[in-house]
Nucleic acid binder design. Structure first.
Length: 959
RNA sequence: GCCGGGUUGGUGGAAGGGUAGACACGGAGGCCUCAAAAGUCUCUGUCCGAGAGGGCGUGCGGGUUCGAAUCCCGCACCCGGCACCA
């Protein structure tokens, strides 16, 4: 494995080799474990005991925890873990009480699929995978507080996941208080009459199921019959967030169909506004904030009622963001599923109905029924593929444009979605490209009400597309009661909104793209719902005292999957097969005594466990509460610079931008509203690490060949003599390009691997792995080792003489730079500065390196190469781990060089370099520069028009 | 289509509007060695030149500035997100 031959080992038995690195690493990993070096102290509770630690400023540093997959880690996986470890170690050395640990997200599809593949129980394979991953991670020297680690599959953990579910279930969103409150407060309102009961009947007269049905409309977790994403290939339903824009499952890439099913939902839409608004106080990458904002899709506009001609009792309510174009609404469209459609359809086509509008049907009822059937049969994918071709049919009904009083025909068309806004729109073909396309196809009238600024004229019939602009003037928009002509878009909107509100036919509203979160899955390997159903089918919560509802042992835990393309299938939860578990006799403590119940057989999605794990790290053994108030306030409470509170640094992949991060924020806010925690955001600072990529080599058939067997000749690549293509891609077993941390550790040691991963480039950027280049960091450690230890005797060679001033300046410059880089996660440049300093020492200190320089240097590299640094620190005569040793602090007086190179430019070109003192004045420098021979030559007697002096680094002479 | 982010040597990458290419890999050469490995030293953007030196250079085209990889405008390409959301 090592490059060293036996002969060299005899010559240099104390060289820093892979073997020595392995010994050192094992030794220090054991030492840290034995001494609990990375234990973070809580202010109280069973993790207390180190008051001096708990008195320090805290830093809560977190990684997105892993799924314990069966294939093991490749070098890309630990990138973020190493980065947080380096940061955590640096923070520990700058006087912080640091909480850094790692748990496992062990429920869910990947674990289950692997278990199914290997034919073992998910718990058995998952636990084996976790043990394997823990061993792989331990080898990297990650400084985790092991006492705080757990897995989401631990019953003691998912007991609290179920508890939180019940908290959400037992809550409703009070719009007046703008927060979640216990459902009891709602019931109390219904009982005493202070809040009208939906349906109008007194609460006392309602039956149990009727009450349950009403409360379902308020609960933050509720069961509803609704169109959901059904994925036969996975055998489960999926949330909107888990379906790609191509209408396929994010996992497995199977087709997804709309099916109308009774499923658990989470009322995340109640939090849409806060989830969008609170992003402002978070220190997150703008790209991620933007993705969340887009997903939530807040849009301000107005609700407008259009009366239906000949029907005093019916009005069509639409949502628009362009109420300023109301005069331009020349027709309306309802979604095919809209509930009003049937009631507005007349018996016969109105006289003079355009042929193109009827779809060739004899009556409106026939036309509507045919179109509805056709629309329902279309999958989302088909619907999207045909997005450009607008289809629809006239309902035979006319509505009235409320401002102009003109009749407008009402269509149904599938380009209007039932799930957004009110499922109905006013169509303004002149100023909306979709309406324009539809109007062209159906020969509908258009009216220009926003003056085009591009010289196309005001006759829409001559246009190629709609004129869409927010920066333009309204025209053609006047009636007896209102005129918008001459107003800008913003003012016109305000005027229309006011006008509508005065007449009670509309108001300004806000709409969201976000839908409620589909929360149940038909899987075995997930948290059971703490819910049972009585004989009438009414859901009841399992009382807290009966938690956790444990996942039963079953013989057949594999999901029932189907032909991926067969939409005519329906989900079958594996738990439903277990009648003994499903049918129970329970006393729920609600006064009804022991009764028969059926358990809920769906399980929670794998996002559930990751929705709150940050909180459990704080107080992992608490059996009374999910987290003690003191621990939560200490580690996550709001404070200066972190107004929402939360984790100080959360590192993970950008692929969780919407899913995990949105769900976790939602749960956190519910817990905050209910008074369980003091922070109202879970993650204050978020950082997305890049991906480690690897070259994928493919032969003529397009099949990946093992990357290690590929040879390069003259810029081309060959495998077994055959040419292969090369493309940068992901690293993975299936692409035959995976490099494991174990291989690199064996060949160079974990410290080299850590350094290499951190030195490759900025943490947030993706870059290709290059095994050949790892040796560079190995050489750095060897050179630094040699500056301290004699390779043949093992003796420490540092000297106690004072370093010269140049060395001292180099040291303090490095300290200064490395400190700033560490604090800002710029580990690549920190390593460059350490390398530079070490190279300087190697070059200048042949008689032994002064201890006063080596010791700070060892501390500088300690967060990056901790075992290596601990070993040298020990050999330098220190008896305690350096984990809590103060990080070196630069002396400002020594940070600057004694002399700096000043560049003298003439017309922007460098003509001379001067060595000048850093404190030189502009005036002195100008004199020096103008006198330099090379400058005199370059100026050549021309008139100096201007001299720009930026002492001490630059002079620019303009002639 | 809309919204983000990016494009710097053979490679990964450095550069608060002020010496472009730090640090590292790879490559070339020297030293050490019987030899090799390891180590170490020098060179390594590109073109012209024996050399001193000079020209050109941060995806392309403009602009602002004494000075632009960096700021502004336009374009090309790559990556990511959303996608009939009214």
């Amino acid at each position: 494995m090592s490059d060293t031959t036996p002969a060299a080992e005899t010559a240099a038995p104390h060289r820093y080799t892979a073997e020595l690195a392995a010994r050192i690493e094992r030794r220090w990993q054991d030492h840290w474990d034995e001494h609990g070096t990375f234990a973070a102290a809580n202010p109280d509770g069973d993790l207390d005991g180190q008051p001096d630690l708990a008195a320090r400023p805290k830093k809560f540093i977190m990684d997105m925890f892993p799924y314990p997959s069966g294939v093991g880690l490749h070098v890309g996986h630990p990138l973020g873990y190493i980065a947080t470890d380096v940061f955590a170690r640096h923070q520990r050395m700058t006087g912080h009480n640091v909480l850094h640990t790692l748990g496992f997200d062990a429920f869910g599809l990947p674990a289950e699929q692997y278990a199914v593949q290997t034919g073992t129980h998910p718990r058995v394979s998952t636990e084996a995978n976790m043990a394997n991953m823990k061993a792989q991670l331990r080898r990297l020297g990650l400084g985790h507080d092991r006492r705080r680690s757990f897995a989401t599959i631990d019953p003691e953990y998912y007991r609290w996941t179920q508890w939180i579910f019940l908290q959400i279930y037992h809550s409703w969103y009070d719009p007046d208080a703008d927060r979640a409150r216990p459902i009891d407060t709602l019931v109390a309102g219904f009982e005493d009459g202070s809040r009208p009961v939906p349906g109008g009947r007194p609460w006392a007269e309602l039956t149990g199921p009727e009450r349950a049905e009403i409360l379902s409309g308020y609960r933050l977790a509720y069961v509803a019959q609704s169109p959901v994403n059904w994925c036969p290939g996975l055998g489960t339903v999926l949330s909107n967030e888990e379906v790609t824009s191509e209408g396929r499952s994010e996992r497995g890439n199977f087709p997804v169909f709309k099916a109308n099913l009774r499923q658990w939902m989470m009322r995340i839409t109640a939090y849409a506004d806060r989830l969008a608004g609170d992003l402002d106080v978070l220190d997150w990458p703008e790209a991620i904030k933007l993705q969340q904002r887009n997903w939530i899709g807040r849009s301000e506009g107005a609700r407008v009622d259009f009366s239906v001609q000949g029907r005093d009792d019916a009005a069509i309510t639409i949502f628009t963001t362009r109420q300023d174009t109301l005069f331009g609404a020349t027709y309306m469209v309802l979604a095919p599923e809209h509930e009003l459609v049937e009631s507005i359809v007349p018996a016969a086509w109105p006289a003079g109905t355009h042929d193109a509008w009827t779809g060739g049907h004899a009556t409106p009822a026939e036309a509507v029924a045919a179109y509805r059937k056709q629309a329902a049969a279309k999958s989302d994918v088909e619907r999207q593929a045909e997005a450009k071709d607008k289809t629809g049919v006239f309902t035979g009904a006319y509505a009235v444009n409320p401002v102009s009083g003109e009749p407008v025909p009402v269509f149904i068309a599938d380009y209007v979605l039932m799930g957004y806004g009110t499922g109905a729109i006013m169509a303004v073909p002149a100023h909306d490209s979709r309406d324009f396309a539809f109007a062209r196809a159906f020969e509908l009238p258009m009216r220009c009400v926003v003056e085009p600024g591009d010289g196309r004229g005001t006759d829409p019939h001559t246009w190629d597309d709609a004129f869409v602009s927010y920066d333009a003037t309204i025209v053609n928009s006047a009636s007896d009661t209102i005129s918008l002509d001459g107003l800008g878009v913003v003012d016109a909107k305000a005027a229309v909104t006011t006008w509508l509100a005065e007449r009670g036919i509309g108001e300004g509203t806000v709409n969201y793209r976000l839908r409620d979160w589909l929360f149940s899955r038909q899987r075995y390997w997930g948290e059971p719902f703490p819910i049972v159903y009585d004989e009438e089918g009414t859901a009841h919560a399992v009382p807290d005292s009966m938690l956790p509802v444990e996942l039963p042992e079953v013989d057949d835990y594999s999901p029932r999957t189907f032909d991926p393309d067969d939409a005519d299938t329906s989900p079958e939860p594996p738990l439903a097969r277990n009648e003994d578990w499903v049918n129970v006799q329970l006393d729920l403590g609600d006064g009804n005594g022991t009764r028969s119940y059926r358990r809920e057989t769906n399980t929670m999605p794998n996002w559930a466990g990751s929705c709150w794990y940050e909180l459990r790290y704080l107080d992992p053994r608490n059996s009374d509460k999910l987290v003690s108030a003191e621990a939560e306030a200490y580690w996550m409470g709001p404070r200066e610079g972190e107004p929402a509170g939360g984790v100080d640094l959360y590192v993970g992949g950008a692929e969780h931008a919407v899913l995990h991060l949105l769900y976790a924020r939602f749960w956190h806010k519910v817990l905050y509203d209910l008074g369980h925690i003091s922070s109202f955001e879970p993650f204050h600072k978020l950082y997305n690490q890049g991906m480690i990529q690897a070259f994928v080599y493919r032969d003529a058939r397009g099949i990946a060949v093992p990357a290690t067997e590929v040879e390069e000749r003259d810029g081309a690549y060959y495998h077994d003599g055959e040419p292969v293509s090369r493309l940068l891609g992901k690293m993975g077993k299936s692409l035959k390009n995976a490099v494991t941390p174990d291989e690199i550790c064996a060949e160079y040691g974990a410290d080299t691997l850590r350094l290499y991963e951190m030195a490759m480039g900025p943490l947030d950027v993706s870059r290709p792995w290059d095994t050949r280049a790892v040796v560079g960091q190995y050489r750095l450690l060897q050179r630094l080792w040699r500056n301290v230890v004699d390779e043949s005797t093992g003796a420490v060679t540092v000297v106690d003489t004072e370093p010269d001033e140049a060395t001292l300046r180099a040291l303090h410059k490095a300290i200064d730079g490395v400190s700033a880089d560490m604090a800002h996660l710029r580990f690549n440049t920190a390593i460059a500065k350490i390398t530079e300093l070490n190279n300087t020492l190697t070059r200048t200190s042949s008689g032994g390196v002064p201890r006063a320089v080596v010791e700070p240097l060892v501390l500088l590299i300690a967060p990056l190469a901790p075992h290596f640094a601990e070993e040298l620190w020990d050999r330098l005569g220190h008896t305690r781990s350096l984990a809590h040793e103060p990080f070196p602090v630069a002396d400002p007086a020594l940070v600057q060089d004694e002399a700096v190179t000043c560049v003298v430019q003439v017309k922007g070109k460098v003509k001379a370099r001067l060595e000048v003192p850093p404190a030189i004045t502009d005036a002195d420098l100008e004199v020096l520069a103008l006198a330099a021979p090379a400058v005199v030559d370059a100026v050549g007697g021309a008139t100096v028009r201007k001299v720009i002096v930026r002492a001490p680094k630059l002079v620019n002479i303009v002639v």
